[in-house]
Amino acid sequence: TTYKLILNGKTLKGETTTEAVDAETAERVFKEYAKKNGVDGEWTYDDATKTFTVTE
């Protein structure tokens, strides 16, 4: 399944996708990605669109 991440950081904005077996796995991948890019904020997930959003 393809999951999407929307980054709404103070200095970094953008989108990325990952293939994962479930939302929990995708969330771990995306949180590591955000951490590596210095983005830390509020996380939300929309199951209907398989989209995570992190907003600083």
Rank of each mutant, 00 (worst) to 15 (best):
E32W: 06
T17Y: 14
K36T: 15
G41V: 02
L12D: 05
E42N: 10
E27N: 06
L12A: 10
N8P: 03
K4L: 09
D46L: 04
T53L: 06
A48N: 12
E32V: 06
A34C: 07
V29Y: 15
W43N: 00
G14H: 09
R28P: 03
L12N: 08
L12W: 13
T25S: 13
T51C: 05
F30E: 00
L5P: 00
T25N: 11
Y33L: 06
T17F: 13
L12G: 07
G38F: 07
V21I: 12
V54W: 03
T55I: 09
T1R: 08
D22K: 04
D22G: 04
Y3I: 01
A23T: 12
D40M: 13
N8I: 11
I6A: 03
T16G: 04
T51S: 06
A20H: 03
R28L: 12
T49M: 06
A23P: 15
I6W: 04
Y45K: 01
K10Q: 15
T53E: 05
I6G: 02
T51Q: 05
G14D: 09
Y3V: 01
E56I: 09
K4C: 06
F30D: 00
E32Y: 06
K36M: 15
L7W: 12
A48D: 13
R28Y: 07
V29C: 06
T2R: 11
N37H: 15
T49N: 09
T55E: 07
D40P: 04
T55C: 06
T51P: 00
T2E: 09
N8C: 07
K31F: 06
D46K: 04
E42L: 10
T49S: 12
Y45D: 00
L7E: 02
T16Q: 09
T55L: 06
T16I: 15
G14Q: 13
K36L: 13
T11W: 13
T51Y: 03
T17Q: 11
A26P: 01
G38N: 14
T16F: 15
A34L: 07
D40S: 13
K50E: 03
L7Y: 10
E15T: 11
R28G: 07
E19S: 11
G41W: 05
T53C: 06
E24V: 13
K4W: 11
Y45G: 00
E56P: 05
G9P: 03
N37Q: 14
T18I: 14
T55Q: 07
E15Q: 10
E19R: 07
T18Q: 06
E24D: 11
T18W: 08
K10C: 11
L5D: 00
K13A: 07
T25Q: 14
Y45W: 03
V21A: 13
A48P: 08
T17N: 07
G9Y: 06
T17W: 14
A23R: 15
T2I: 15
I6L: 08
F52P: 00
A26I: 02
G41K: 01
D40K: 10
E24S: 12
K36I: 14
T2S: 09
G38E: 06
A48Q: 15
E15A: 09
E42S: 13
G41Y: 03
T1E: 15
R28K: 13
D22Y: 04
E15H: 11
V29K: 10
T16V: 14
A34K: 01
W43M: 04
T51A: 04
E15L: 10
F30Y: 01
A48G: 08
G41F: 03
N8Q: 11
T17L: 10
F52C: 00
E32D: 11
T18C: 09
E56R: 03
E19L: 09
N8S: 09
F30C: 02
K35I: 10
G38Q: 08
T25Y: 08
V39A: 03
T55Y: 09
V39S: 03
W43R: 00
A20E: 05
E19D: 11
V54E: 00
E24G: 10
D46S: 07
E42K: 12
L5N: 00
A20M: 03
T18S: 05
N37G: 05
K13Q: 13
D22F: 04
D22M: 04
K50V: 03
K36Q: 11
E27L: 10
L5K: 00
T53V: 10
L5Q: 01
E32R: 06
Y3W: 09
R28D: 05
V29Q: 09
F30V: 02
K35W: 15
K36G: 07
V54H: 01
V54T: 03
K10G: 05
E42R: 11
T18K: 04
K31G: 04
N37F: 15
T49K: 07
A26L: 00
K13R: 13
A23M: 10
E27T: 04
F52N: 00
F30W: 02
N8H: 12
Y3L: 01
T1Y: 13
R28M: 12
K10T: 12
D47E: 15
T11H: 14
T44H: 11
E56K: 04
A20F: 04
Y33G: 02
K50W: 06
V21D: 14
K35F: 15
G38S: 07
E56V: 09
G14T: 13
K36E: 12
E19C: 09
T49W: 04
E27G: 08
T53A: 05
A34D: 00
L5A: 03
T44N: 12
T55N: 10
V39D: 02
Y33R: 03
T11E: 11
L7V: 10
D46Y: 04
G14C: 08
V54Q: 01
L7G: 02
T2K: 11
E15C: 08
V54K: 01
T18N: 04
Y33W: 14
L5W: 03
T11C: 11
T53H: 07
Y3D: 00
D22I: 03
T1N: 09
A20K: 03
Y33K: 02
L12H: 15
Y33A: 03
K4F: 14
V39L: 10
K36A: 11
K36C: 08
G38D: 07
L5M: 05
A23D: 08
R28F: 10
V21R: 07
E32G: 05
